[in-house]
């Protein structure tokens, strides 16, 4: 049994350390990490993947904590991924979401991992896709992904989720901020957290006003749920909305479409990885200088050379492995 197969079986046995190590491989995007995601993908597809996004300080981590406690009470196993930005200067990051999740993460039915955005284009959504696949295959029933929802990669992450909750809080001018960030379009459920504070009703009305501006025709009209994450209030209603949305996705056929899309994605990633790897090998090989010069001088067309390379590679593959 090779190292990847060994880790796969330990992950399927829900061994915490194996899940943790697998996530590290996935984050590093090493060859082993890629192979791991490919091996686990067919075993995934059962979890409900839930995105939680909103401005810093609205209470997302606190909400993840109380949501996890409530889901555990109902018997679900919960995987949590919390993404924080990497510093553009040093590349380092402080990942502080665990501070608010201490009550829920000690339970063996919960696994929580902090991820840094690491700044590279597409890299974050790729790592998150791998991490979600791993947790899904490991048998977590619900996977919660927290992000601050600002950059392009964060929006891509939210597209990974079956159900995305946009969290707002009264008195932060968030209603305005939300439209600016284009965040209204990605929410299937809106949460007005800190409902213990003045202005929660006002914020809820403002969201409803903006949503009705062009969404009446949709089959799913986003519910607006008020919560006090700090005291676990409103969580029953929130879980009810999540379940309804999941049911809607299943009934409408969207859930199956999402899985189809992900399957296509896995194949595409494998193809890109393969081309990447082989191209690096060709570049390191003998005939490369001559080929490069032919293309540079116009003696041969780049696409023609590329096609020839691909053909010889596939032939090589048939003969070899």
């Amino acid at each position: 049994m090779n190292e990847v197969d060994g880790l796969v079986s330990r992950i399927l046995e829900r061994e915490k350390r194996a899940i943790a190590r697998g996530l590290t491989w996935v984050e590093r995007d090493s060859e082993d990490g890629k192979a791991l995601v490919r091996a686990l993908f067919p075993l995934a597809g059962k979890a409900h993947i839930v995105g939680i996004t909103g401005a810093p300080g609205v209470g997302k981590s606190t909400l993840v904590n109380s949501l996890t406690l409530e889901l555990r009470r109902r018997g679900a196993r919960v995987g949590i991924l919390a993404v924080d930005p990497s510093s553009p200067f040093s590349g380092g990051a402080i990942l502080g979401d665990r501070i608010r999740m201490q009550e829920s993460v000690m339970d063996d039915g919960v696994f929580m991992r902090s991820l840094a955005s690491r700044g590279h284009l597409g890299g974050l959504s790729r790592a998150t896709f791998g991490a979600v696949t791993l947790m899904d295959a490991a048998g977590f029933d619900v996977i919660l992904i927290e992000t601050v929802g600002a950059g392009q990669s964060e929006v891509e992450i939210m597209q990974l989720a079956h159900s995305t909750m946009v969290v707002l809080a009264p008195g932060l001018g968030d209603d305005i901020q939300a439209i600016k960030a284009g965040i209204l379009e990605i929410g299937q459920i809106f949460v007005v957290n800190k409902a213990d504070r003045d202005g929660a009703d006002h914020t809820a009305r403002a969201i409803r006003g903006m949503l009705t501006l062009g969404m009446q025709h949709l089959d799913w009209f986003p519910p607006i749920v008020k919560t006090v994450a700090e005291h676990g209030e409103g969580l029953g209603e929130l879980i009810g909305s999540l379940e309804k949305h999941r049911e809607y996705l299943s009934q409408s056929g969207e859930l199956a479409l999402i899985r189809d899309g992900q399957t296509a994605h896995v194949i595409q990633l494998a193809m890109e990885d393969w081309v990447d790897r082989e191209f690096r090998r060709v570049k390191a090989g003998a005939g490369w200088d001559a080929l490069r010069q032919q293309v540079a001088s116009g003696a041969r067309d780049a696409a023609e050379v590329a096609l020839e390379m691909l053909r010889s590679l596939t032939e090589g593959d048939n003969n070899g492995s």
């Binding site: 502080g96 665990r98 501070i99 993460v105 991992r113």
Partner: peptide, 23 residues
């Protein structure tokens, strides 16, 4: 470096469990 910070008043069990999950 990527630094996971978990706040005050952690028990040894919480700390080692967090270190395990965060690898």
């Amino acid at each position: 470096m990527e630094v996971v910070y978990t706040g005050l008043h952690q028990t040894p069990e919480q700390i080692v469990d967090a270190a395990l999950q965060e690898d």
